Simulated assay, not measured.
Amino acid sequence: MLRRTVWLAVAAALLPGLARAQSPFGPGLGPALPSITEPGLPAPSIGGEEAALALSAVLGGTDRKLASGLAWRVYEDRSDGTKPTIVARSNEAEPSLRLPAGAYVVTVTYGFASASRKIVMSGQPQSERLKVNAGALKLSGAIGDTRIPPAQIAFSVFVPIGTNSEGRLVRSGVKAGELLRLPEGTYHVVSTYGESNAIQRADLKVENGRVTDATLNHRAATVTLKLVASAGAEAFAGTAFSVLTPGGDTIREAIGAFPQVTLAEGDYVLIARHDGQVYTREFKVESGLDRDVEVLAKS
């Protein structure tokens, strides 16, 4: 079950975060960067009188300036097929850069979103405002009405490609409550609770100037594994546990007196190995019911 709330918040809601100097999306995804080696462009003519280039960025669909989290790069606009050269850079919200007369490409990144523009400096002061089409994802997890602690859950965000929902990874290890700035589009989110098989998935849409706040609902519980001589007795230390599906697939292995394992709701087989002996039992995981699972050490 997915509870999804979209907050109609504009740029002020997009909190500062890590700005990326390059889009991870590759060709065809995210704003296109104009080719700076495109045939037919005029040959670069950098030189002559310098002038100030004032830069600013606004969020797509709004007139409000972005005040933080920006990374600016200015490249010499070349047509000879050589590697482009960065001639200026800044992480200020509204930088003013002095550039000689010539042709350039200006790029700005905001999280995973970016924008770019070709410009020509002619020795006169100039100002450029770029529009960044971006929104944000804010993710959390829950079991029923109980929020999962942020330290126990992580998210991976993908761009679907064709019929493959996990076509291209945007970012893994996204934390609950973190604001992830993204270009407008649809994303596939994988939520992992714990380190085993408690996984939920959802397709979420990011819109310009808005925060998509989504909670992914898990059906899972945490069980504490124990090997004991009798019910309620002290657990044997150094026991090796294996959690299997009824079909025999291994879900998780752990060693200790009472390791904890988070599992999706369902039926399981527990194998405990201690001092050369092997003990088994079947058990059931019910969503939201954390409990001890004891294996009796009987010959």
Rank of each mutant, 00 (worst) to 15 (best):
268 Y>N: 03
224 T>S: 15
10 V>S: 15
112 F>W: 04
252 R>D: 01
103 A>W: 01
275 D>P: 06
176 A>W: 05
223 V>W: 14
295 V>R: 10
278 V>R: 15
67 A>H: 08
295 V>A: 10
25 F>D: 09
178 E>P: 03
155 F>K: 11
39 P>Q: 07
67 A>R: 15
287 S>H: 05
157 V>W: 07
170 V>E: 08
266 G>Y: 05
229 A>V: 08
28 G>M: 03
152 Q>P: 05
155 F>G: 09
274 H>W: 14
259 P>M: 05
217 N>V: 11
139 L>R: 06
237 A>Q: 15
7 W>T: 03
267 D>R: 09
85 T>R: 08
18 L>S: 08
175 K>I: 00
253 E>Q: 15
69 G>R: 11
270 L>R: 07
262 T>W: 06
259 P>S: 12
180 L>T: 04
96 S>W: 01
135 G>L: 04
229 A>D: 13
175 K>H: 10
212 T>Q: 14
111 G>Q: 01
251 I>H: 03
82 T>W: 07
104 Y>V: 09
134 A>F: 01
61 G>E: 12
108 V>C: 15
295 V>F: 04
174 V>G: 11
144 G>N: 03
44 P>Q: 09
96 S>K: 13
159 V>K: 04
298 K>E: 01
58 V>K: 13
191 S>M: 02
171 R>T: 07
24 P>C: 12
143 I>M: 13
276 G>I: 08
213 D>V: 06
236 F>Q: 15
158 F>R: 03
18 L>K: 09
247 G>T: 02
284 K>E: 10
132 V>R: 03
241 F>T: 07
2 L>A: 09
58 V>F: 03
71 A>G: 02
70 L>D: 07
66 L>N: 02
240 A>I: 01
54 A>S: 14
60 G>P: 12
15 L>S: 15
14 L>C: 11
55 L>I: 07
19 A>E: 14
237 A>P: 13
137 L>H: 05
230 S>L: 00
112 F>C: 04
219 R>G: 03
41 L>T: 01
229 A>I: 01
113 A>S: 12
43 A>V: 14
106 V>S: 14
37 T>N: 15
288 G>C: 04
103 A>R: 14
23 S>M: 11
8 L>M: 03
280 T>P: 01
16 P>R: 14
82 T>P: 00
260 Q>K: 11
156 S>V: 02
88 A>N: 03
269 V>A: 04
241 F>Q: 06
192 T>K: 15
51 A>Q: 04
51 A>P: 06
114 S>M: 10
142 A>E: 02
66 L>C: 04
113 A>G: 10
232 G>V: 09
12 A>G: 07
7 W>P: 00
229 A>P: 03
110 Y>L: 06
238 G>H: 08
191 S>Q: 04
175 K>W: 02
243 V>L: 02
31 P>T: 00
49 E>P: 02
51 A>E: 05
187 Y>G: 07
299 S>C: 01
221 A>P: 05
145 D>P: 02
268 Y>H: 06
188 H>I: 04
207 E>I: 00
186 T>E: 14
